[in-house]
């Protein structure tokens, strides 16, 4: 199946699943016993955070595959770049939705909790990665350097997490991983949350495919521009050399005439 067709199918599926999540999350599910309507934000926040982590996982994997010589291909670099870009958007969304939830729940927009701090550092780490990609160097150089930077970021994240974890912790523990046994979340609420995860993962896949296609097109345009520029320069050099040849032959004729005059 061709890429645009796959993309369209995933796009439609993600749109439908997001709409169903919104309807279930806002209108069908009951309000939470403790948090009331505030809990509805949790159909969005954990899925968005999951997608951010997934995106960085994909970026690291693709970067590793690029650096490994047997699998080296520009395609991995383009996938890493696309995924990181989408990851940054979702990390920002995670922080925003978390803040909106934190204000009424904790009384503050922001707190120096382990997970919040790690996520904020993650955001700046990958903003740096995207900035590094904008440095004007050859494609191969850029691919290699960004792959190394992505892997360093990947190595750094557990250390960052551990350090801020020791530093302070307020964020609640993971509740989603133990969905089957946890009595705190069940029934329609659990299903809506699960649908949220599926919906946002589909949105992620759709966005990455779209971004990947844009990156491929951008690279193709760049290659075309370079070849057009080369052609232009070649023509210029060609016409210049014609001109020089013409001038030389004129000069030769002239000297020939003058020398004949002398004779």
């Amino acid at each position: 199946m061709r890429m645009p067709v796959v993309r369209t199918i995933i796009g439609v599926l993600s749109l439908v699943s997001v709409i169903v999540t919104v309807i279930l999350g806002l209108f069908i599910t009951p309000p939470d016993v403790v948090q009331g309507n505030l809990a509805r934000l949790l159909y969005v926040h954990p899925p968005v955070a999951w997608v951010a982590y997934l995106a960085y996982g994909v970026t690291s994997l693709a970067s590793g595959l690029y650096l490994w010589k047997p699998t080296r291909s520009m395609r991995w670099d383009q996938i890493a770049a696309s995924s990181a870009e989408v990851g940054v958007v979702f990390t920002a969304l995670t922080l925003v939705t978390g803040s909106i939830w934190g204000r009424p729940a904790w009384g503050v927009w922001w707190t120096w909790d382990a997970r919040l701090t790690t996520t904020a550092i993650l955001l700046v780490l990958y903003l740096g990665y995207l900035a590094l990609r904008r440095v004007q160097v050859s494609r191969e150089k850029r691919a290699k350097r960004s792959a190394i930077a992505a892997l360093i970021a990947f190595i750094d994240v557990p250390i960052v997490h551990e350090s801020v974890n020791w530093w302070r912790t307020l964020h609640q523990g993971a509740t989603v991983a133990s969905i089957g046994t946890n009595s705190k979340i069940h029934g329609i609420m659990a299903w809506t949350l699960l649908l949220g995860f599926i919906a946002f993962t589909l949105v992620y896949v759709w966005m990455v495919i779209l971004r990947y296609e844009v990156t491929v097109t951008e690279d193709a345009i760049e290659a075309l521009n370079i070849s057009a520029w080369t052609l232009e320069r070649e023509n210029e050099i060609g016409s210049l050399s014609d001109e020089i040849a013409g001038l030389l032959s004129d000069n030769k004729d002239r000297t020939g005439t003058s020398s004949s005059k002398v004779r």
């Binding site: 590094l132 440095v135 160097v137 350097r145 930077a149 750094d156 801020v164």
Partner: peptide, 28 residues
């Protein structure tokens, strides 16, 4: 990171943005 981004002026001004988040655990 200095060697990753040292190719031109633009790259050099990137060094703080790249290095500081990585150094977060060190600072803490």
């Amino acid at each position: 990171y200095g060697s990753l981004a040292s190719d031109d002026r633009l790259g050099e001004s990137l060094v703080p943005l790249l290095v500081l988040p990585i150094l977060a655990p060190i600072i803490i």
